[in-house]
Computed example of a mutant assay.
Amino acid sequence: MASKLIYVLNGPNLNRLGKREPEIYGSQTLDDIAALLVERGETLGCEIEMRQSNHEGHLVDWLHEAEEEGAHAVLLNAGAYTHTSVALLDAIRSITAPVIEVHLSNPHTREPFRHTSWVGQAAKGTIAGFGAQSYLLALEAAAGL
């Protein structure tokens, strides 16, 4: 059986995980999360393509690429772009691969500006508030699609 290609795209400041506000985002780094995803992906028959950028256009390009490469699904933690990026909303709507929105924290328990998600308006679903476990839960959901 061929493995399912899962793109895991991470937005601005997620390269700072483990250092940036660990009381909100936890102490695990993005590399730690990538290792967990690869390990879980192997048991689920999924190949993980993990990327991070602080630039909105890279995320848009990678969403398009995920479609072109036949990705089974995309896990997207757009960081602050979640709440500001119509470009990401449009990119998600332009592809057929399902996108699952992922957040380490629960945006609805934070500042009011974080309560609106442009990404979520086009995502298949959202998993938030479980720290690094949010990614693993999203991967399980994606594998089952």
Results as ranks from 00 to 15, higher is better:
Ala2Ser: 13
Ser3Asn: 14
Leu5Glu: 07
Ile6His: 01
Ile6Arg: 06
Tyr7His: 11
Val8Arg: 00
Asn10Val: 02
Pro12Thr: 07
Leu14Lys: 05
Arg16Asp: 12
Leu17Phe: 05
Lys19Glu: 12
Arg20Asp: 04
Glu21Leu: 14
Pro22Ile: 05
Pro22Tyr: 10
Pro22Gly: 00
Glu23Lys: 12
Ser27Lys: 12
Gln28Phe: 01
Asp32Leu: 04
Ile33Arg: 00
Ala35Pro: 03
Leu37Asn: 00
Arg40Glu: 09
Gly41Gln: 02
Thr43Asp: 13
Gly45Thr: 08
Cys46Gly: 04
Cys46His: 04
Ile48Tyr: 03
Ile48Ala: 01
Glu49Thr: 14
Arg51Ile: 06
Gln52Pro: 01
Gln52Gly: 00
Asn54Arg: 02
His55Asp: 13
Glu56Ile: 07
His58Leu: 14
Leu59Thr: 07
Val60Ala: 06
His64Gln: 13
Glu67Asp: 13
Glu68Phe: 15
Glu69His: 15
Gly70Asp: 02
Ala71Gly: 05
His72Ile: 05
Val74Ala: 00
Leu75Met: 06
Leu76Ser: 03
Asn77Lys: 04
Asn77Pro: 01
Ala78Ser: 00
Ala78Asn: 01
Gly79Asp: 01
Ala80Thr: 06
Ser85Ile: 04
Val86Glu: 13
Leu88Glu: 00
Leu88Met: 05
Leu88His: 04
Leu89Trp: 11
Ser94Leu: 09
Thr96Ala: 09
Thr96Glu: 15
Ala97His: 03
Val99Glu: 02
Val99Ser: 01
Ile100Ser: 10
Glu101Lys: 09
Val102Gln: 06
His103Met: 07
Leu104Cys: 02
Leu104Gln: 00
Ser105Phe: 01
Ser105Trp: 07
Thr109Leu: 15
Thr109Gln: 15
Arg110Trp: 07
Phe113Val: 08
Phe113Gln: 11
Arg114Ala: 04
Thr116Tyr: 15
Ser117Thr: 10
Ser117Gln: 11
Trp118Met: 12
Gly120Thr: 14
Lys124Pro: 11
Gly125Ile: 09
Gly125Trp: 11
Ala128Glu: 05
Ala128Trp: 04
Ala128His: 07
Gly129Asn: 07
Gly131Met: 09
Ala132Ser: 04
Ser134His: 07
Tyr135Phe: 00
Leu136Ser: 05
Ala138Leu: 06
Ala143Val: 05
Ala143Gly: 05
Gly144Gln: 15
Leu145Glu: 15
